[in-house]
Design a binder for these strands. Structure first.
Lengths: 258, 258
DNA sequence: CGTACCTTTGATAGAGTTCAAGAACGGTGG
DNA sequence: CCACCGTTCTTGAACTCTATCAAAGGTACG
């Protein structure tokens, strides 16, 4: 089975055969995209809307932007004027405390929207950094309103709120084992939705970034990977992960606390 | 100085003299409210918008709903069709894991909006329970769109996303002392914005609920209250809190980690 | 006015952090 | 293409913070 996103343009499995053509069609040659022909349209903003809403939005064309590994998409305090839809690649978002401590607040892959935390204050409230060479669609905020896409934006933001609740739950009530199991299962689910293997993938973040996201030290993350491997749940070799026992990972989350 | 919200209808200090009249005007006598005359309008959904937007919305009239202490405003899984603006009282929201563990994800006071996590799936994603006899404005979601209030909703949701990031930071990187200090300072700030004393208030939640929110055990919360008191930062007697040294509390958050 | 709930405080234990050192990897330049 | 260097990862050992268990007050609500 194909391993998720080894290269920048690795295409989702299920659409692999037509992916090249689709991408060509989605690109007007001037670094801009048309939603109608974008192979991410089911995952992106218009996700889940009725057909005529898609049509209204489909002719809208958005500029792309490439972000190299390690570069920032935006920084805390920068003026907000657009949302970004991840087209390819992988991002992390993080917040910094005055004293320098920082916390990774999320990882973002193709089809996901970042930047919504800037709407309220018209300033971005976090840093977003590419973990590999990536590409985004720039969605000017004003344009969303013209296109009558508010409802889709509400949905996307609401989903984000629910996701945040999940992270709070994870940080507030779960033990280290459970957090990492939940993290791996979450990644697996998201890769599946993109047509990649649910059981084999490359982590694009370091142990330190995983630890920051999960509220653990990087050593604990490393130790847990080793333990999961010893228990036959996964195989780890650096950033390459194979999940051998999904049910076993799920069991980690329920069997621990009693 | 007046202590925040001892009674259901305790009015914010700064508006205390006209509060009774204001409330009377905001109520059309049929359990419904007009935003224009609501004394919470600066804090609620229209907060921060330009004048003509306020006017467009001001004539909208919303039904109220009373929720008794201990009763639920809504439950996880319930169908979503409205947002709720807290008019008076105090709520907590929480999520439950399959195994019964639950986590308080937020506390909500007058002028704050709850229910936004239901927009995405059209089902509420959390439980919201009144911690004292309370009252909300019911804001039907469909009505927001008719009234062209989407932008205000975006702002409210975005602010919530930023708030969530703060909670993640708290849970992910702060130690117990820092969490509780941050919690007290946050409450203080919110009370001030409502015209109450920044330094003296009644907690409306139990130690257990505070602990759940902060990812700590109730015993740790209790011990920290005692320690803060011994250190002269606050005075605690059950749920009554007096902050003696705001700067000292702030210092707890920076001096600990080095 | 009684009882159930909440809070405080102590003692103990354990999960996870911190410090440390060596190993493996990957990118870069000769 | 290979060697080198910085970064990332792994693993061990000691320690520390916070949870857990337990028991005794204290409150407040019905």
């Amino acid at each position: 089975m194909q391993i998720a996103s080894i290269t920048l343009h690795a295409a989702p499995l299920r659409r692999a055969t037509s992916a090249a053509k689709t991408r060509a069609r989605a690109d007007d040659g001037a670094g801009r995209n048309r939603c109608r022909t974008c192979n991410l349209r089911e995952l992106c903003l218009p996700g889940g809307i009725v057909q005529d809403e898609v049509d209204a939005f489909s002719d809208t064309v958005f500029t792309r932007r490439r972000v190299k590994r390690g570069d920032t998409l935006y920084r805390l305090g920068e003026e907000f004027n657009a949302l970004y839809a991840v087209r390819a690649g992988f991002f992390k978002s993080s917040v910094v405390l005055e004293d320098g401590r920082d916390q990774v607040t999320g990882f973002h892959m193709a089809g996901e929207i970042v930047g919504m935390d800037g709407i309220g204050t018209e300033r971005h409230a976090s840093d977003v950094i590419a973990l590999e060479d990536s590409e985004v669609c720039i969605i000017p905020y004003a344009r969303l309103e013209e296109a009558g896409m508010q409802r889709q934006l509400h949905r996307a933001m609401s989903r984000e709120l629910v996701r945040d609740q999940g992270v709070m739950m994870l940080l507030g009530t779960m033990r280290a084992e459970e957090r990492l199991a939940a993290f791996l299962l979450n990644l697996s689910t998201r890769f599946v939705a993109r047509g990649f293997s649910p059981s084999e993938f490359h982590l694009r973040m370091t142990r330190e970034e995983i630890g920051s996201y999960l509220g653990l030290s990087l050593e604990t993350v490393s130790r847990l990977f080793s333990r999961f491997q010893d228990d036959g749940l996964i195989a780890v070799r650096q950033k390459h992960i194979v999940i051998h026992d999904i049910a076993g990972l799920k069991a980690v989350m329920v069997k621990v606390q009693d």
